[in-house]
Design a protein around this nucleic acid. Structure first.
Lengths: 260, 260
DNA sequence: CGCAACGTTGAAGCAGGTCAAAGGTTGTGG
DNA sequence: CCACAACCTTTGACCTGCTTCAACGTTGCG
């Protein structure tokens, strides 16, 4: 029984666009709209996974705390995304905490509605699996980066990803669409707020970003993308195509000295 | 049309045990057995995801290479596990390479068989989703460890996990059930083979493990588990219950000096 | 027997974590 | 409307866990 406002929002989501009116009706059975103020929690890690959700508007932060009390940010939820799928995956409890970083609006189904929900349109179940697949790939991507890349590259890539997913153009660049702190970025990249602050200061000086309290604006995506590439060649780099500029890599390979 | 041998193996797997004979018949439609010698590849990263699989016997290594050429190990596949589910997740290509670390036997279905496969028993689809959920949690666990833990803890936990999943008891401890190198462990934990070698040497001296070429035996799971805990308290640890032994944390809190 | 793959160990250097302290910005309550 | 508190950010100095580099020992296979 969502309001007409919700209906309009729903129709705009890729998730529901392919459904007929009748199918949408079925899919929405049992769904309740749910407003979250900035800072409010949708659910907390460890709570029974009694609902699954779709975010209609706003931004949510998904985080986990380790047994030692450290926190990491799993991802941000964008409008149109499903979340809280614990029940769909046969898990009894939510594995993470979800908090609104802005005033947000979502739709909540009771866990028991999952089967009828996926049955209402053959594609919905497949989309859920696809979503899981995507998240899994993202997670592995992140593991790769944590394993092999340096902090600067990780932070650069994370910022680019945020911009791509939720960025909004402003007068002097693309803004991350929601408030975010240095600490948040540190928790996304496995580093400390100090290191993030130092990096952003450096980038600000170089004109790559502008930033303030809880706000980051990307001014030069190209420059940031360049930072993501593998670190510059330490010495010669004959094997590396992208480093060749036409001249031989090592002067000593030219037999000039030999002719003396 | 798998052989009778396969049938016996299949009946032993948790995955297929709940199925009736008729359901098993349906589920197996289109499946072909497939033997892999040690070192042989089931498929390579980037290839079209034309099949999905179940491992019947042996052990497989799932790995990814980064654009820079670094390799990471995603996981090991144990008997009874499904793998190569790219097609189920709506992905056209395999995101990783799968290689047999021992002579192995698996069952392969063409991608098109996924729908009838899941339809043959209502639980099979749910199990696939659950499997994805598990993998996702494992991945996040690993991200947490890479973000917060030191190398020694990561290696210790990884070894415990290997032992739990595939370990086989031997005369002087539990053996990782398949050949594995220092480099492999390094690629699972985001470190270098040098550091892993140093750690294993240290543990060997302390009697926690025994190890040789491509072989690791865990002699004291308890000692290894102790290494996984958070690092020992640097100074006083009044707030930490597990560190208290009944005596006050700080001598200076006792007003002895004051009575002088 | 010799080569290739795997393992061990030392020494040196640095990326980035930790510790410490001060400066900005936002909101709130008197 | 101002002052204070809470929170966020910046910056410096130091220190260490790990990587890197280099060299050598060991195992097993063709």
């Amino acid at each position: 029984m969502p309001s007409p406002l919700c209906h309009a929002l729903l129709r705009n989501l890729d998730l529901f666009r392919p459904l007929s009116d009748a199918q949408l009706e079925t899919a929405l059975h049992g769904a309740a709209p749910c407003r979250l103020e900035a800072g409010a929690l949708a659910y907390v890690q460890g709570a029974p996974g009694a609902h699954f959700f779709v975010l209609l508007q706003g931004f949510l932060k998904v985080s986990q705390v380790t047994p030692e009390g450290e926190q990491i940010i799993v991802r941000y939820v964008n409008p149109g995304d499903m979340f809280g799928l614990a029940c769909a995956m046969g898990q009894t409890c939510y594995p993470a905490t979800v908090q609104a970083v802005q005033e947000s609006l979502c739709l909540a189904w009771p866990a028991a509605a999952w089967t009828p929900f996926t049955a209402s349109h053959p594609q919905l179940g497949a989309i859920a699996l696809q979503t899981m697949g995507h998240r899994l790939q993202d997670a592995h991507q992140r593991i790769q980066e944590l394993s092999n890349d340096e902090v600067e590259q990780r932070v650069a890539r994370t910022l680019l990803r945020l911009i791509n997913q939720s960025g909004r153009p402003t007068h002097d660049g693309i803004d991350v669409g929601f408030p975010i702190t240095r600490q948040d970025i540190a928790e996304m990249t496995g580093t400390t707020l100090h290191t993030v602050s130092r990096l952003l200061s450096d980038w600000k000086q170089r004109g790559i970003v502008a930033s303030g309290r809880k706000r980051i604006v990307l001014r030069s995506p190209a420059a940031l993308a360049r930072l993501c590439e593998h670190t510059p060649p330490p010495m010669d780099c004959a094997a590396c195509l992208s480093c060749r500029d036409g001249s031989p890599a090592m002067e000593t390979s030219i037999p000039v000295l030999a002719t003396h």
